[in-house]
């Protein structure tokens, strides 16, 4: 039976080079602003994930993901050889949006850096989750709605089965975008146990 599971992380290691890259800087660029912003955001983020396992079945022109069906070719290639998937949603919460919104009004440079920090944080969160799952399973790279030809429409089905608003506070708007903005939904193919 596939049940909804949750994980909370208290800390996720920071990858400063990634933050600089997202902010449009070269790796060796010295930017004290990044440290200032990191210290401002410290203690304001949380790291939440909710996830569920599903069986995946392939027919000639469709993939049955267990919670939705799709004819995405790129996903089919990604899930080649998998019988199960992990469907997850991850978020670092709304405080980063508050900071981005605030500084977007008064200091675009800070808004840009917080944007970069948020992108790095949620990606690093997904990486940590991936690593943890890969201790048990052989995994494919994670695949999100919007990658390749996988339409964003599948977000609705994902939100239905993961109950994101209730479980981790992530909501979906009419344009199928998520709030808090630094949130991710993705499918990870499981090739087998380790």
């Amino acid at each position: 039976m596939n049940i909804l599971l949750q994980k909370n992380y208290t800390e996720i290691p920071i990858n400063k080079a990634e933050i600089l890259r997202y902010a449009g800087c070269k790796n060796d660029c010295e930017l004290p602003l990044v440290d200032e912003c990191l210290s401002e955001v410290k203690d304001k983020l949380f790291y939440k994930i909710c996830y569920r396992f599903f069986d995946v079945k392939f027919t000639e022109n469709e993939i049955d993901l267990g919670f939705a069906k799709t004819n995405s070719e790129s996903l089919r290639r990604n899930l080649d050889g998998c019988e199960k998937i992990i469907l997850f949603s991850a978020t670092i919460g709304i405080e980063i949006d508050r900071l981005i919104k605030k500084y977007n009004k008064i200091s675009p440079s800070r808004a840009l850096v917080f944007q970069a920090i948020g992108a790095e944080r949620v990606e690093s969160l997904c990486n940590s989750f991936n690593e943890e799952m890969s201790e048990e399973f052989l995994l494919k790279p994670r695949f999100s709605p919007g990658y390749g030809d996988l339409s964003l429409d599948i977000q609705k089905d994902i939100f239905n089965v993961l109950e994101c608003p209730k479980n981790i506070g992530v909501t979906l708007n009419d344009s199928l975008l998520m709030s808090p903005s630094k949130s991710v939904t993705a499918i990870i193919g499981i090739q087998g146990r380790k």
């Binding site: 919104k101 608003p165 708007n173 709030s179």
Partner: peptide, 14 residues
């Protein structure tokens, strides 16, 4: 009665 599943403005679009 519970959440309508939409985040309100200014952080959401509702």
């Amino acid at each position: 009665v519970s959440t309508i599943g939409r985040l309100l403005k200014p952080y959401g679009d509702f």
